[in-house]
Amino acid sequence: MKKIITTFGIFALTATLFIGSASAKSSEVIEFWNGNKTQVRQQYERQLLQAVLEASVKKHGNFTVNEDTQNLTNSEESAVFSDQRADVFVTVAGNPKLKSKDKILVARPLMQGLLGHRLLIVRKQDLPLFADIQTEKAFKELSIGIPEGWADASLFRHNGYNVVEGGTFDDIFDLLAAKEFDYVALGANEIEQAFESRAAKYEMFSIEPTTLLYYPFALVFYVHPDKPELANRLRDGLKAIDENGVAQRLFEQATGDLIERLGLPDRKLFRLQNPLLPKQLQNYRSPLAEQSDE
């Protein structure tokens, strides 16, 4: 598959060609893989990395980022640091594809854990069924469809859910239409775009309005094992943008009124455990989940 590479650097507000002077020659060149995700996540993670690197220029110097947005197979993703030559990418903490791989975890969760707030896409004819469900036991009698290789599959199985795993993200709505399973669960931050770009064309699906599944599902930076200096730079930059408010501003730009629009606080809530979390994040919980308990 042909790679699509976009380059950006210091002071760029969007992904664009970095044009520098002599200082560009000493810039740190960072290979950033940003594939296998929705466009809304790609944009947020691109802007976040940009902000993190800009916040660390004084201590760590200038930078140039080569962004690769190609989609990879499961085996290719597991070799993202070796065969694909990436320096950094964003994925869920504890991604099983990286389990046996050398890597550096930057254990500062991104996007306030919103990806772990899962909403459902269901067949319209089944909306009354989901609205009537009030217990976890009843919910587990239904089946969830998950693309092959997604970390969610082992997580849902660990919690006793009925999982049908197979196909790709492109296949999943064909399978839902064929009644191979009862629902698909996607992060609240990406479900609307996924629905519009992939599910709406079937005219038989709906975003289910009453149910929220929650599990601690942190997005994090993983860094090439030979790049500890880059990992330290990301830690410094993340701390800086947390303190100066840039991280919150980027989150609000990415989500807008999503939490209210999708009615997250008003939905019936089913909580799941996440056995995939690495030891550094065993006690992680989304601040949004904390707010919903207040």
Rank of each mutant, 00 (worst) to 15 (best):
M1W: 04
K2Y: 05
I5C: 06
G9C: 05
F11T: 14
F11R: 13
A12F: 01
A12K: 12
T14Q: 14
T16S: 15
L17P: 07
I19L: 06
G20S: 12
A22E: 11
S23M: 06
S26G: 08
E28H: 09
E28K: 11
V29D: 05
N34E: 07
G35Y: 01
T38S: 15
Q39E: 12
Q42N: 06
Q43L: 14
Q43P: 00
Q43M: 07
Q43W: 03
Y44R: 10
Y44V: 05
R46P: 00
L49A: 01
Q50Y: 06
S56T: 00
K58T: 04
H60G: 02
V65E: 03
N66W: 08
N66R: 13
E67I: 09
T69R: 14
T69M: 05
Q70N: 15
E76N: 02
E77L: 11
S78N: 04
V80H: 01
S82N: 09
S82L: 09
S82E: 13
A86H: 03
D87R: 07
V92R: 07
N95D: 14
P96M: 08
L98T: 02
K101I: 07
D102N: 13
K103C: 01
V106E: 06
P109I: 04
Q112W: 03
G113H: 00
L114A: 09
H117C: 10
R123E: 11
L127D: 06
L127F: 02
L129A: 11
F130S: 07
A131E: 15
D132L: 09
I133A: 05
T135P: 06
E136R: 12
L142H: 03
P147L: 02
G160W: 04
Y161L: 01
Y161P: 00
V164G: 00
G166Q: 09
T168C: 03
T168G: 10
L175A: 10
A177H: 12
A178T: 01
A178M: 12
A178N: 12
K179D: 15
D182R: 10
D182S: 11
Y183D: 09
L186K: 07
G187S: 12
A188D: 05
N189I: 02
I191W: 13
E192H: 08
Q193H: 13
Q193A: 06
S197G: 05
S197N: 14
R198M: 13
R198I: 12
Y202K: 13
F205C: 05
S206N: 08
T210H: 10
L212K: 02
L212G: 03
A218L: 04
L219N: 13
F221I: 00
H224G: 04
P225K: 07
D226Q: 13
K227M: 08
E229S: 08
L230N: 02
L234H: 03
L234S: 03
D236N: 09
L238W: 01
A240Q: 09
A240S: 08
D242T: 08
D242W: 01
D242A: 14
G245A: 06
Q253N: 13
D257N: 14
D257G: 11
R261K: 11
L262I: 07
L264M: 11
P265F: 05
Q273D: 14
L277A: 09
P278G: 00
P278T: 01
L281P: 08
S286V: 03
Q291M: 11
D293V: 08
